[in-house]
């Protein structure tokens, strides 16, 4: 108990934490100074001078907290990320496993996969808009593509990294092909599926934001809601409220961070044997 408490105290007031606080505070102060350089010194700092000051951003944020449209943007983006991510997992994992299990299937599918992979997901946006009936679906599709490649590559890598001795041991104990798949290939690839999911989640956020910006928010109404956080940023830019751009950026950062953390927790539940002793 007291030892645990000590640890917490150590983590909170340890040297590393103090320095982190110092470093972020210094960063914010410099940013503030840079942004307000025109007011205070009468000289516009290059680059930073154009960026709204942190205090102004904070003020804008406080105003937005009561705005339903802002939260609606959160919801929309989350919704799309989840859609793209889950479909990438649902299709990517079986696809990867099928390639891992069948050499023939891999021989057919993998070269095509490898040829398509270098095309950045965002290059698919126009094609996707043409193909899918709704913009919602087309954004989800591009998001799906972003995570799909990563998930498949990780499943394959994971399956390849399984120690042959596990197969030999299983065969020696009379396991059938199905047993080997279920008890060796599946758990053996799980850790790298978890890693692939985490990376894929990051990419999903990147893609969602961009797709929202490029396709103009996905809903015809425009407005401040409905379009997701990417559109929120774009709209703020078009509307000239620069503080809101930064609010939007930070919001996406937070949203992405939450997703990764949740995913890490889930990953830990699925792969208990990787927990540190």
């Amino acid at each position: 108990m007291s030892k645990g408490l000590q640890k917490v105290k150590g983590a909170v007031f340890g040297r590393g934490m103090l320095r982190a606080i110092v470093s972020i505070v210094v960063f914010l102060v410099l940013w503030e100074l840079g942004s307000r350089s025109k007011q205070w010194v009468g000289f516009v700092m290059p680059w930073v001078g154009q960026v709204p000051a942190p205090t102004a951003v904070l003020a804008a944020w406080v105003e937005l907290v009561g705005d339903a449209g802002y939260w609606q943007s959160w919801y929309m983006s989350f919704f799309r990320v989840l859609g793209g991510f889950l479909s990438a997992m649902a299709i990517g994992i079986p696809f990867g496993l099928a390639m891992a299990v069948s050499r023939n299937f891999k021989g057919v599918a993998f070269p095509v996969f490898e040829v398509l992979r270098p095309i950045p997901p965002l290059a698919w946006v126009p094609a996707s808009i043409i193909f899918w009936p709704t913009q919602e679906l087309s954004i989800t599709f591009v998001t799906f593509l972003g995570a799909f490649y990563t998930v498949v590559i990780n499943v394959l890598g994971g399956a390849r990294s399984i120690d042959v001795r596990y197969y030999q041991a299983a065969q020696a104990m009379g396991a059938s092909d199905w047993d080997i798949f279920r008890r060796i290939i599946l758990p053996g690839t799980l850790p790298s599926i978890v890693v692939g999911a985490a990376v894929g989640m990051g990419i999903t956020w990147e893609v969602v934001v961009a797709a929202e910006m490029i396709s103009g928010g996905g809903s015809q109404s425009g407005g401040s809601g409905g379009g997701g956080l990417g559109f929120f940023i774009w709209n703020s830019y078009v509307g000239g409220s620069y503080e809101q751009i930064v609010v939007g950026m930070i919001s996406i950062g937070i949203a992405g961070y939450i997703c990764s953390e949740v995913l890490r927790k889930f990953g830990g539940i699925f792969t208990p044997w990787l927990r540190l002793r």
């Binding site: 956020w205 990147e206 934001v209 961009a210 910006m213 956080l229 990417g230 940023i233 774009w234 703020s236 830019y237 751009i245 939007g248 950026m249 930070i250 996406i252 950062g253 937070i254 992405g256 961070y257 990764s260």
Partner: peptide, 9 residues
């Protein structure tokens, strides 16, 4: 954690 593309504007 801020996606690169959120930096566009």
């Amino acid at each position: 954690p801020i996606p690169i593309l959120a930096w566009v504007p």
